[in-house]
């Protein structure tokens, strides 16, 4: 098959030229090339990309709630909400990770990051003279779990830390 408008050869199965959209002619091809067809798909199937990471949205909501509690909290009781949420967040990730060893180790790093967030909140709390007892307890809890993971899987945990924090 040939397209006389574009002057190109086309496979025998084509009725219309893909370049110009004109009907093709029965003229023999100039080049002896065999067709290598693609699957007959014109609409892209849904991408095999997983849906948005649910933890990500949970973490965002929790971060906002933490900030709100910290701002409106005027007593030790109020500040306990922040570590409870941080702890729940870490626990959620940790439980999800129990089914996969690699993810479990990354959850250790997640806990370490939670400690870092807690420390930043501590500094803000000190500057704003807010009671920080709850956050201190949360940070201590996270450190304890992190140390436990390091003791259980020392080599893999070292590699995971190197990978995550390599500069």
């Amino acid at each position: 098959m040939r397209c006389m408008q574009c002057d190109v050869d086309l496979p025998d199965s084509y009725h219309v030229c893909p370049l110009c959209g004109e009907a093709v002619s029965d003229t023999p091809n100039q080049l002896p090339i065999e067709e290598a067809p693609y699957p007959d798909v014109t609409q892209s199937v849904e991408a095999d990309v997983p849906a948005a990471y649910p933890n990500k949205h949970v973490l965002r909501v929790i971060a906002v709630l933490c900030a709100v509690f910290l701002l409106i909290g005027q007593s030790t009781l109020w500040t306990l909400f922040t570590p409870i949420l941080l702890g729940l967040c870490a626990l959620f990730y940790f439980v999800c990770a129990l089914f996969e060893k690699g993810k479990l180790l990354r959850s250790g790093v997640c806990l370490l990051s939670t400690v870092a967030v807690a420390l930043v909140l501590q500094v803000f709390g000190l500057l704003l003279r807010l009671p920080m007892l709850g956050i201190s307890l949360a940070a201590a809890g996270c450190i304890a779990v992190f140390v436990l993971l390091c003791l259980l899987f020392p080599a893999r945990m070292r590699a995971q830390l190197q990978a995550t924090f390599h500069a």
């Binding site: 084509y14 080049l31 090339i33 798909v41």
Partner: peptide, 14 residues
């Protein structure tokens, strides 16, 4: 093709 290079066209949309 106008420059004398014969071309065979194939597309995933046809």
């Amino acid at each position: 093709t106008a420059a004398g290079v014969p071309v065979y066209i194939e597309s995933n949309f046809h």
